[in-house]
Design a protein around this nucleic acid. Sequence first.
DNA 1: GATCATAGTCGTCTGCCTGACGATAAACAC
DNA 2: GTGTTTATCGTCAGGCAGACGACTATGATC
Lengths: 252, 252
Amino acid sequence: MPYDPSAFPPFAVTVDLVVLTVRRHALCALAVRRGEPPFQGRWALPGGFVRADEDLAQAAARELAEETGLRVHDPAVPAQDNGAHLEQLATYGDPKRDPRMRVVSVAHLALAPDLPPPRAGGDASNARWAPVEELLQQGGYGREAEPVAPLAFDHAQILADGVERARSKIEYSSLATAFCPPEFTVGELRRVYEAVWGVALDPRNFHRKVTGTPGFLVPTGGTTTRQGGRPAQLFRAGGATLLNPPMLRPEV
Amino acid sequence: MPYDPSAFPPFAVTVDLVVLTVRRHALCALAVRRGEPPFQGRWALPGGFVRADEDLAQAAARELAEETGLRVHDPAVPAQDNGAHLEQLATYGDPKRDPRMRVVSVAHLALAPDLPPPRAGGDASNARWAPVEELLQQGGYGREAEPVAPLAFDHAQILADGVERARSKIEYSSLATAFCPPEFTVGELRRVYEAVWGVALDPRNFHRKVTGTPGFLVPTGGTTTRQGGRPAQLFRAGGATLLNPPMLRPEV
DNA sequence: GATCATAGTCGTCTGCCTGACGATAAACAC
DNA sequence: GTGTTTATCGTCAGGCAGACGACTATGATC
């Protein structure tokens, strides 16, 4: 295949973001309302074109900052701020996924602690955290009787893939701490697992598991009663990124 | 962001393939020799441009068929032929990864049983199976005193990511059977794990594990002595794709 | 201030799985 | 037959997870 610029068709390349957080015991994703066709008025995942001089990860981080103000957590400086976790998810390139032209979208997955409601281009009414359950049901309606689903383009599929990635990855990594503030309690971490998996976990076994895994949690010495009840120890995420043996997701 | 075709830069989109197999107790990858600049004469992963009307998976399957003659295994018809397993790996889009122009490559991972030596465009000398160990070492030399490494572009990184994906995925899935012929013995499957992980496994514990996992293996009734020694039962891959509990990779 | 509700933390027990490894079986080479 | 190779079954101890009891330390309520 000799080099011939006319030999390949031109593509537009975008990044789309699955930004997940845990709010009110529910796994939520960031959705923005589309202002122009196609799918005008429908909700979609945030995203945008990759610029000519940008790496894919840079483009995703830029979009994330534009939509949420979040900086990306630098893995070289662990457990330092509440920057978000960002990783590449998958790439979607069906020829018909965008009716305007051939667009290949490199989806990224971002995990963030609970945040104030987002603004999209300064307009809060065009961005919201929505429970993934609502976003993924066919033709579902949000609490405000405003349809949030189905998402535009193939974004329901992208979101589903991102949720599945998050659900499986917190099993064998310390990624669940990305949903927590810099200091958190064992109970708060457990509620993250419960929200992401949609199950109830035994507090005693969970406590034994996470505190018994070396490098997972480091106590800060402080305590808090912000969850009510007996004061709980505060922890920060330890350096360990891989959980071995993994946290077992209860079956069914 | 109103629709404006001049608002985004044009990209070329390619698929690159990490095709893995197990040959002579070693994990090997398919490499092709580049016929033109850049990196002329160097070895690279097979790949090519995505066509205008093609899905990414279709493009990857087409390239795989062109390079190896392999068809992609249809998950809807499990354990039927020795088609290859194909999945998307990751996407690489550094602005400088190709000196000619902006190329975004959607890498795919393919796992195949041991195959006859490949042909690239009919020329066998320009395609070979090389142990990933040789391909990944810096400036390494193959047995024929011909340099196979480093690979062109960022293909060493792509290959390393693909190998890591394969190594981790056979832990918790039945993917290792994709390296085996349609009918195989427990010992042959064990040698796949040993080659991919580069470790020695206890034959007795391995046998207990795989035969005790429901849905993983189904006996065909036949036996074979192609490995020497006592005749071994032949199995086909069962329908189960997830291995729970997972096969544990010995640490270090 | 006593009581209650809530959440956190420590233990116990049982069953399952794994790693280590002995023992036997069935082929082939000489 | 003897030795070698590979397959397969069994045994045993240790580790971990699920189920669950017991106790602790707060705030809320009467």
